[in-house]
Amino acid sequence: MSSLKELICILCICLAWSAVTADSVTDRSALLEMARENLRVTQAAERRISDEYNSLYAAGALAAEEIEEYRGFLQRIRRFVERYRLEVAVLSGAVDQDQVSVMRRQDLSRGFSGEQTDEERTGALDAELDASLGDFDEMLLREQEQLADKARTAEAAGGGGAGGTAGAQSYAGDAGAASDTFSTQGEIGAGAPDAADAAETGEGPVAAAGGYSKTAQQEGKSPAPADIPDGGDDDIVARQLREAAEKETDPALREKLWDEYRKYKNATR
């Protein structure tokens, strides 16, 4: 492989020099001669390296890495062969000048000194894209695992509001099902005499505020005396009295608060 590497170096330097200086050569015949010489040299190099590779490959003397190295170089030198062949064709009048301009521009964009080919570059970028997509997938997977953990924790805690506020009454069955409740409702207020009566006395609807708080019966609160109703119809004042009584730790004071509660309830009934 040492001779191969020497040859590669010489060839690359030669080709790079010729490419850089090509534009400065104005004599068409000299350009043609130079292109022919370049073509001859590159073709010879391509043949020699190709033979060397084939024999070594057939003998099984090449490591996988070396095989890749040979193939890469052969691909590159064949591209140079094609380029000089085209230049010879143009300079000898066989093809249009525009075609060679396109070719030269492409070659310059690729570079002449061992840069990747378009295919190699595309492959590398594709690999980078795949790796990036993989990273993104992992990030999403982690996120989804966290969500699943959160859902499991909520379930274990009995939270999450599973079942929502589904009550014993059904107002519509499923989304499309008919319901008497829908069709028999009148105007709000007119169809709710109980609510109106309760409002008249200051009870009822206001009491719902007490019902809203799910923490009303939390631990740490003293139980209400037996004669105290459940508080479902407490208004805001009654609720405050009730909460104060429930939270009170002094038994005497607590009883006074319950008395206040009873008085208030009787007064507003």
Binding site: A154, G159, G160, G161, A162, G164, T165, I188, G189, A192, A195, A196, A198, A199, E200, G204, P205, V206, A208, A209, G211, Y212, K214
Partner: peptide, 24 residues
């Protein structure tokens, strides 16, 4: 999921309160 129940309760009780307020 976290919001469903408290939201339904809030709307229900707000609705009751608003109706009672109008009536009063």
């Amino acid at each position: 999921v976290e919001m469903f129940e408290p939201y339904a309760n809030w709307r229900r009780f707000r609705s009751q309160e608003a109706a009672a307020l109008r009536e009063v």
